[in-house]
Structures are given as structure tokens and as C-alpha cells.
Design a binder for these strands. Structure first.
Lengths: 249, 249
DNA sequence: CATTTTTGCGCAGTTTTATGCAGTTTCCTC
DNA sequence: GAGGAAACTGCATAAAACTGCGCAAAAATG
């Protein structure tokens, strides 16, 4: 049996039954448990299902038992992100009207922002709650809420954006290359990024060095549309660009 | 049974019944109390429920009755609110487009809503996050975020509302009288309630009986604009209205 | 304050997982 | 097609996770 076919049948079984155990799958597909486990690893990475101890479940039922907040992503490049955000926070002036993109990097920025009367707008509901809890003035874009990133997308968000004019903005990016520009994995979120960026005067992309040289699925802006604040092992060929700003931890 | 599956069923039971004891869970899931306790520990850590002496409760009931234990959890209209919300949840059809008001009563409704493909819209960012975490389709109004109630108000919210047409909606109210109508303490939030109500076909106000006969500061709708689902000691003079729906705990 | 219930924790036994290895298949290049 | 790299598979084994039980400590109860 083809690997792809086996994968398809695993996904189908999980969808049909909600949860399946590894031995069940091994018996049904007449293969070893090792193979099933490796399959589940891949399917989990591909977000087709969720691997759990003993087997697999659908994403829907996994929602119940897992805290799908940004908390899980912490730890990666934490120190670099902190350095980047410290630099970014210093850019905020009392009179600024600031856009804050959703994402784990900008999340670190939240706590470093000065307690001034600057106004903030964000597409992330969790960011908004934290900012409001600090007593800052926050406006939330409307729109459909994607649970994975807790970001808002869709026409509602874009309409509100169309009437706002930011003096300053901070965005994250999953990939950055001179050729593909700034890229993000999700088309809807990329659209919000694109529109919000068009409406800001001073634009900064906050990204640790691991994002440089990588390309994600959807381009939301050109490479030179924003100042890129980065930190970490910056590849030599990126040092010469004058919109790359390297900070030290 | 898979560990993850058991976790899901525990969460489900807690959501359905509000509170569950350890022995009940052990019997229902045919496992030992030790295992149940360990499960509750993990689910508590994952913020899926709150572990209390004797068993577990949902997050919002723990919030309402903070440091009370299972035995003394009565009062505070908890049971009435749950009865009201159970009735309300049953009104949602699979293809409804539902508005959900911010507030503590509608908060209880969140966990009782059926996992259908109905679409939900709310002005409460915390409600939205909880709904999204359950895998439901959620749209959030935009606007300024008031940290006290975590509700969104202002022109951004009203603009988005102006383009939506709900088949069904649930609101809270702080005061209800035939003369003053439905009242709420905060003018901006009252405005959002008013506009959202105008845009819904089937309108329900969820309020325990303590709200009947009281008047808050701002009227957001007439007494007869919505069906009022209530529970508790309903004053005799309210029994005759045909838009008052009294449910039993 | 005594009684009963519930909890936390160590322990032992079982199940599940991760990983290295060897053999095989598949795919790509020339 | 032929050769070689990469991927896939199954097995063995050590590590990790899970479960049930018993008992002392802690918490609730009246």
C-alpha cells in the first residue's frame, strides 16, 4: 500500500471515529505500529490530526483538552525576540497611533510598551486584552476569529482598517527574502497585514534571524517596505541592506 | 479508552452539568479515582476546568463562587442562570447566525452551545476566545476595548453591526420593567445592545428573576422587544406577560 | 473537636513511545 | 536503463508515560 494512501485512510478513520489507537490502526492497515507512529507524526505536523498518547484524535476534540494559546510557542529565540522588542518599544512616542500585528514576537513587545497615552490598534484579541489590562487605550479590529493564532481576519477587519491612519506599526513575518519579500503562512492574515501596513507611516517588521532567507506561503509586502529589526545569526548577505537593523541581545 | 478521549469526556461532563464529583467521573468513565484526580490536575493546568475539593467545576462558576466548595455552591443565581442558558442553548439551530451579548449570564451559555456549524458574533473578546477554543465559528465586533467588561464599543462596533443580519440573538440586562424597558448601566454598551438587537429576528433576553422590577441607567430596548427567559422568584405581576418565559432549574 | 471524606504521593506493573539499525523500495540523475 | 541517494519499513530495546492501590496527611462536616 502506498504511503499516501495509508495516510489518507488514517485521516479518514480518525475523522470517522473521533479517536483511534495505534494498535487499531496497525491492525486495520496491516502494517507495524512503528509505521503508524511515524505516519501520525507527519499527519500531526501537517495538522491533519492530533497525535496523543496511545493514538490520535481529530483537531476538534483536541481543542477540548489543550490550551491552544500562544504559550506553546515560547522559548524559541526568546532572548533575541526580547532584544528586538526592547528596541521597538523605544520607538513609540506619546502621540503615536500604533498598529500591533498578532504573533508571538509582538506578544513580547506588549509588556515593554511605555505607559503613555499612545493609542493602539491590533488584530489579536489576546494582545488587546493584555494591553487593556495594562490600562492602555486599545481598539480591536473586527472580523472572524482564527483560534490557532487568535487573530482577526476578513472583511470586517479590513473595513475598519481602511479608515485608520497609523503613525507607527509593528508586524511579524514568517519568512523574509529580498526576492519574495515578507511572507506569512495564512492568506487571510496576510491580507490584514498588507492592508494595515499600507496605512502606516513608520513600518517595522520584528523578526529574529531565523526568518531571514526563508519563504512562507503568501507575500504581504515587499522586502523594502519596512525596516526589519532582527537579532541573532544574521546571514552575511543580509548585512548590506540598509533597511535591516541588527540589534544585540 | 485513550487518555485524551477521557479528558475530552471529563470536560464535556463538566460543561454539561456545571459541577461533577470525582467518584461520579470515576464511575462514568470506568477508571480509578486516582486517574480522575490526575486528569483533573492536567485539565486544570490547561485551563479547561477548575479543580475544587471534591471534584471540578467550569471556569465561570468557579469565578462566580470563588472560594466556595462543592457543598455550598448554591445561591448567587448560579442554578437559575444555568437553567435559563440550557433553555437558550436549545434554541440554536444548525444554520442560525447568532448574536451573543457580553456579560456573565451569556458567559454560562457559551459552554452549553451545541457544536454545530452555526455562526456566532459577539462584542465580548473573552466570549469570542472561549467560543473559538471550542472550534466554533466566531466573528468579533471591532471597536474600543473596555477593560472592565472586556466588551467592545464605539463606531467600529456599530459599523460592522450595521451590515449583519442575525437570525437569533441573546442579550443580558441589568434591569427589566414594563415601564423603563430593558436597561443597562453603561451608555456605550447600551448602544451596542440596541443596535445589535435591531438587527436580529428572534430576540431573547436572559435574566434571572432578580432583574425583574429593577431599573438600571440606560434603556436599550422596550420591554416587549424580546422574549425574556427567566428563572427564580418571578413576581406575580410579571407572570401575565406573554413575552416572559419562566423555566425551572 | 472527633469523625468522615478527600487528597497527595510513592510504588510497582503495564503500556506506549522514541530511536538506532538493517534491509528494501522509490525516485532522480546521468 | 543503470547507479546512487533518499525515503520507507519492520524490529529490538531503552526511556517515558500511564494506571491502580495503599496509606498518611489535609480538609470538610456537624
Amino acid at each position: 500500500m502506498l504511503t499516501a494512501e495509508r495516510h489518507a485512510r488514517i485521516v479518514e478513520m480518525v475523522r470517522l471515529r473521533g479517536t483511534v489507537t495505534v494498535p487499531e490502526l496497525a491492525a486495520a492497515l496491516e502494517t507495524s505500529e512503528s509505521t503508524i507512529r511515524r505516519d501520525l507524526d507527519k499527519l500531526d505536523q501537517a495538522h491533519q490530526l492530533v497525535k496523543v498518547h496511545g493514538g490520535a484524535t481529530t483537531r476538534e476534540s483536541a481543542h477540548l483538552t489543550r490550551d491552544l494559546t500562544l504559550g506553546e510557542r515560547h522559548g524559541l529565540h526568546e532572548e533575541e525576540k526580547r532584544a528586538i522588542c526592547a528596541h521597538a518599544a523605544a520607538l513609540v512616542q506619546p502621540d503615536d497611533f500604533v498598529y500591533l500585528d498578532a504573533g508571538s514576537t509582538t506578544e513580547i513587545l506588549l509588556d515593554l510598551l511605555p505607559p503613555t497615552r499612545a493609542g493602539y490598534v491590533t488584530d489579536s484579541v489576546s494582545h488587546a486584552i493584555r494591553l487593556a489590562a495594562r490600562g492602555l487605550s486599545v481598539t480591536v479590529l473586527g472580523g472572524e476569529l482564527k483560534s490557532a493564532t487568535e487573530a482577526l481576519v476578513g472583511p470586517g477587519a479590513l473595513d475598519l482598517l481602511a479608515r485608520l491612519h497609523f503613525t507607527l506599526g509593528f508586524w511579524g513575518a514568517n519568512g523574509i527574502t529580498p526576492e519574495a519579500g515578507l511572507t506569512s503562512p495564512e492568506p487571510n492574515e496576510a491580507m490584514v497585514k498588507r492592508v494595515s501596513m499600507e496605512r502606516a507611516t513608520r513600518r517595522y517588521v520584528l523578526a529574529d534571524a531565523s526568518k531571514l532567507g526563508r519563504t512562507s506561503l503568501v507575500t504581504f509586502a515587499d522586502f523594502c517596505d519596512a525596516t526589519i529589526v532582527t537579532c541573532g545569526d544574521v546571514p552575511e548577505e543580509y548585512r548590506s541592506f540598509d533597511n535591516i537593523l541588527e540589534v544585540r541581545p
